[in-house]
Amino acid sequence: MNRINTKKIILILGLLFLNTSLAYSDETYDNKLIIQSTTSTRDSGFYNFILPEFEKHYDIKVKVVAYGTGQAINNARNCNADILIVHSLYDEIDFVKNGYGIDRSDLMHNDFIIIGPENDPLNIASQKDVKTAFKKILLGESSFISRGDDSGTYKAETKIWEQIEVDPKDRKYKSYYESGQGMGATINIAIGMNGYTYTDRATWINFKNKINHKILFEKDPLSFNQYGIIRVSNEKCPNVNVKASKIFYNWMLSDIGKKLIVDYKVNNEQLFFIK
């Protein structure tokens, strides 16, 4: 009697399992497209907004994998992408020059901002430009959390440090920390330490746990944030789905794609812009 019950339970569990495995079997069809993307575009919900529109018109299943720009580019170099959407112009051009990318275009842009505690102990909000704001933060008592990874945001931040000719990694600067993590995780740390950080606007607008932090400095020409779109070369990577990547690339840059980009809003704020 007891044994029969065990068998029944195993049978039921087995059936349940079979049921779920049918629902989740891997997709094997050829019209799939892998986008290696920066985290900011994914975390902002941008792809959830535009991809359903794309998939409505084309029989192409798009998969988005999000990492910092440097890692996304490396993944594409390892042939794990058909399309690359990142934000570090120098690396993008390098990628195309070395034959890994075919076409590159400006896709959209927004800007980087400095966020910090509402009471703004270092008075960053009243600085005249982003360079003096950075200097002030580095020499101040509050902490500054840098990405410290290979991301486009970190590269943009590094450019500013270079322009004011300081090396923030120097041990004498006690306020500078590197998280080595994504933008959201870094904002979490900045809030936890009641410090400042340099972030792209899209990630910040989407961030749900702002507590007492807000935008303190914005709209400096140096803080321009350009996103580019690249088709990965099928000569370097024979596995690239050329047809699908061409369709997606052209669609993104078409009037329909552009309209979707400027139409995307979070909390009534536009996240990405086109010239």
Partner: peptide, 22 residues
Amino acid sequence: GNIDHLTRVMTTSIVLETSRGN
């Protein structure tokens, strides 16, 4: 790769939602 609707499971969503401040 933590891809939505394809490879996003409980633990990876927890990582993602925490980093989104959600």
